[in-house]
Every structure is written in structure tokens, then in C-alpha cells.
Design a protein around this nucleic acid. Structure first.
Lengths: 122, 122
DNA sequence: CCGTATCCAATGGGATACTG
DNA sequence: CAGTATCCCATTGGATACGG
């Protein structure tokens, strides 16, 4: 298949948007962008609010999709490092743009909401 | 507040990622990017699989955030047009990049998954 | 045609406890 | 330290019916 179309119900590219869209993916990618390599516990500290379960799940998904690589060192206790792959860094670049856009426009968005809600009361 | 940080638990910019991340937002934005202006029923046909309820909800959220404008013509039955605002088009540009990236890399991602799953069986 | 309202099933995701 | 395994609640979102 050469021409993908995300608007088609069963286009596999929808899965990418689904993955990117789940609660912690973009935040984990953002944290990894800033630090090159991070251990599990560091990642957990940086992504405020994420639970151990969800961080593990998010990292597994990213690893499965080839976006993050996982390196285990046989120390006691175990040391595990996570970093973005080349493919992951490409995604990170997009996420970065979205994040910058959010920073630049969140004020305008909140103003729009306030305006919308004010009209709705009438 | 000047320095936002999406990694902070209660940074309002997280809401942007939440909004972008819900199931139909990026698809609706994509459809609107391609067509400039669309009626509700046209939008519903283009975004395969979306239900009336979810399309309405997604459009309301986008409208509330100032990303989509809604125009009602007092015909019988009602005619309603949706289009991206200037702010919405900025978001659309980012979504567009993400979509292109998905098209370019979905094959590689699926290969990575197959590889990951094959190893997991061992 | 373009919604709103309701009900309900499925999924997502948090809390907690336990292991190498 | 870095997981895995449950349990369970909250939210998402689909199906259906109805209204302007």
C-alpha cells in the first residue's frame, strides 16, 4: 500500500495517532528529548503524576514501536536506561513543535474558553 | 506565568495535549484542513467511524478552545458550517506534520512491532 | 439536517501489594 | 531499582431514541 489515509477507518496510521494520543506518551517523549538518556526512576520523577504502572506501560509501547530503546545493566539492584531511537527522535521533533505551540497559545485558548462559557450562560 | 512546563502536573498546557490526544480531534482537524469549510454531515462522512455524538462533542471542544468556528444558517432544515480559525490552522499544521510522519514510517513501526513480539515469545 | 439525552459496555488508568 | 500482578473505579465513547 502506497497511499495511506488516516481518515479511513482501518488505516494502520490511525494507530500512530492513538499511541501518540494516550495520556503519557508525549510527556515521556518530551522528558527523553530533554535528557538524551534516563533511568526509570529519573523518568518517573520528571513526568509528574505518572504512576509506575503507566510509565512501564508507556515505555513498553514506545519500545515495541521502535521509538525507544531499553538497556538493562546486570547490577544489583537492576539499572535500566531508556533513550529515544532515531525514529523516536523524529517523533520527538513533532511533539516538540506541538509543545511549543501549546506554550505560545495556551493563554489565547483559555481566553477563548472563558468567552465561550460566558456566552453559553445566556 | 511566562515559563510553562508540560511536565509539571498542573501546567495548563497539559490540557492542550489532552485535547489533541482524544480519539477524534486530530482526524477532524485533518478533514477540515483538506476542505477549508465543511458541513456537519460532510465531516461525518469524511471521518470514517465517528458517531454523531462524538463528532458533535469534538467540534464543541474545538470551538470552545477557539480552534474551529461554527456558522449556522437559518434554513429548514438547519445548515451548519465548520471551518478552522487562524489558531486552528496553526494546530492543523502540526497535525499535518505528524500525519506525514505516520505515513512515512508506519511500515517501519509495524516491522518493529513484529520484531518485538517475536522476541517476546521466546 | 443537526443536534441533545440517556443508557450502557469497554477501556484506561490509579492504588496497592509483591518479586528478582 | 525496576518491574509484574490484581483489583477496581472513573472516564470514554458507542448505540439508540427523540427534538427543533
Amino acid at each position: 500500500m502506497l497511499g495511506w489515509d488516516v481518515l479511513s477507518a482501518n488505516c494502520p496510521t490511525r494507530q500512530v495517532l492513538t499511541r501518540v494520543g494516550d495520556k503519557w506518551t508525549m510527556l515521556v517523549v518530551t522528558a527523553l528529548t530533554a535528557s538524551d538518556v534516563l533511568r526509570f526512576s529519573e523518568l518517573r520523577r520528571r513526568v509528574e503524576g505518572v504512576t509506575q504502572k503507566m510509565l512501564t506501560q508507556t515505555l513498553r509501547h514506545l519500545e515495541r514501536d521502535g521509538l525507544v530503546s531499553r538497556t538493562v545493566y546486570p547490577t544489583v539492584p537492576a539499572t535500566v536506561e531508556y533513550r529515544l531511537t532515531d525514529l523516536g527522535r523524529e517523533l520527538a521533533a513533532t511533539v516538540h513543535v506541538l509543545r511549543r505551540w501549546s506554550y505560545a497559545n495556551i493563554t489565547q485558548i483559555e481566553a477563548a474558553r472563558a468567552d465561550f462559557d460566558a456566552r453559553a450562560v445566556q
